[in-house]
C-alpha cells in the first residue's frame, strides 16, 4: 500500500495561509510602525511640511522618553522580581496545599480581575479617603485624611507596583506549579536527597535552576507586558514621570498639533525596543517557550 504524505506548503492552501498570516498578523504592525515613523519625521500628518529630524532632536533633548523608559523599566523590573520571588516562595512552601482544589481555585481567582478593576480597587483601598485611611482614622492612628501616607499616585509608584503584584503573582504560581509537575522536580529532589544533598543544595542546585530556566522567557515576556502597561499607571500613576504607554497617548492626544509628531517619536522608539527584545527572546534556536 502506498503511504500518502501530504505535500505541506506546496499547495494553494498553504500559500493562502501564509498570505492571510501576512495580511492579518504582519501587515497591521508594519503599517502602524511605518505610519508612526513617517509622522515622526514630519512626512505625513496634519502639520506635515517635509522631512525633518526636529521632533526626534526635541524628544532626545528633553529626555522625556528616556526618563519614562527608565521609570517604566524600574517599575516593571521591581514588580516582576518581587512577583517571581513571592510566587516561588509560595509555590515551594505550600506545594502540597496547592493540590487542594479549593486552594488552587483561590490561586486562579485573581486572574479574573482585569488591570482596570485592580487599579480601581487599590484606589478604594489605599487612597487618602480610602478604606485603610478610614480604619486608621477610626483606630485614632490619624486625625485627618491628609495624614494618611501617599500610597497611590505617589512618587515611588507603590500603588502601581502593588497592582502589578496582585495581578501576576498568581500567574507565576500556576506557572511554577506546572513546571514543577512537568519537569518531575519532585523526583529529582528525592534523587538529590538520596545522593546526599542537603536541603539548601537541593533548593539552590536543583529546584530553583530548573524552575527559573524553564520559565525565563515567560518572565522576560511579562517584563515587556508590564513595561507597556496602560490602565494601571493611568489610574494609579503620577503626573510626571509617566509610564511609557501613558506618555505616548498623552503626547498623541495633545491639542498642540506640533507636539503630536513627538508622540510618534516616542511610539517608534518604544516599538523598536520591544522588537529588539522580541528578537532576543524568540529568534534563538532551541529556546524553551511557554505560551
Amino acid at each position: 500500500m502506498k503511504i500518502l504524505e501530504r505535500p505541506l506548503l506546496k499547495n494553494k492552501t498553504s500559500a493562502t495561509g501564509i498570505l492571510l498570516f501576512i495580511v492579518l498578523g504582519v501587515l497591521p504592525f508594519a503599517a502602524a510602525f511605518i505610519y508612526a515613523l513617517l509622522y515622526s519625521f514630519g512626512l505625513v500628518g496634519v502639520i506635515s511640511s517635509g522631512f525633518t529630524t526636529e521632533f526626534w532632536v526635541s524628544v532626545i533633548k528633553t529626555g522625556s522618553f528616556f526618563k519614562s523608559l527608565g521609570y517604566s523599566a524600574a517599575i516593571a523590573g521591581i514588580a516582576v522580581f518581587l512577583s517571581v520571588v513571592i510566587a516561588l516562595w509560595l509555590t515551594l512552601k505550600f506545594k502540597s496545599a496547592l493540590e487542594n482544589k479549593f486552594i488552587l481555585m483561590m490561586v486562579y481567582m485573581p486572574l479574573a480581575i482585569p488591570g482596570l478593576a485592580t487599579a480601581f480597587f487599590i484606589i478604594q483601598l489605599l487612597a487618602k479617603g480610602g478604606f485603610l485611611s478610614r480604619i486608621s482614622y477610626a483606630s485614632r492612628l490619624i486625625n485627618e485624611s491628609n495624614e494618611f501616607p501617599d500610597l497611590v499616585n505617589d512618587n515611588l509608584a507603590l500603588g502601581i507596583i502593588l497592582a502589578f503584584l496582585t495581578m501576576i503573582i498568581p500567574f507565576f504560581m500556576l506557572l511554577f506549579l506546572n513546571v514543577y509537575k512537568n519537569e518531575r522536580i519532585e523526583d529529582l529532589r528525592i534523587l538529590a536527597y538520596s545522593l546526599g544533598a542537603t536541603s539548601r543544595q537541593v533548593r539552590n542546585k536543583v529546584v530553583l535552576p530548573i524552575l527559573l530556566k524553564k520559565t525565563r522567557v515567560l518572565i522576560a515576556l511579562y517584563f515587556i507586558f508590564l513595561l507597556g502597561s496602560y490602565e494601571v499607571p493611568l489610574i494609579l500613576g503620577q503626573e510626571s514621570p509617566q509610564m511609557i504607554s501613558v506618555l505616548v497617548i498623552q503626547e498623541l492626544k495633545q491639542y498642540d498639533l506640533d507636539k503630536i509628531p513627538e508622540g510618534y517619536v516616542v511610539a517608534v522608539m518604544y516599538t523598536i525596543i520591544v522588537a529588539i527584545a522580541a528578537v532576543f527572546l524568540f529568534l534563538p534556536r532551541k529556546r524553551e517557550q511557554y505560551v
Binding site: A31, A32, F33
Partner: peptide, 23 residues
C-alpha cells in the same frame, strides 16, 4: 514567522491602536 507573530502580541495594545488609528 513566529517572531513576526510575537511583534504585535507584545507591543502595548494602546500604542498599537494609536499608530493604527489613521488607517
Amino acid at each position: 514567522l513566529n517572531l513576526l507573530a510575537y511583534l504585535p502580541y507584545i507591543l502595548a495594545p494602546v500604542v498599537f491602536a494609536a499608530c493604527l488609528s489613521y488607517f
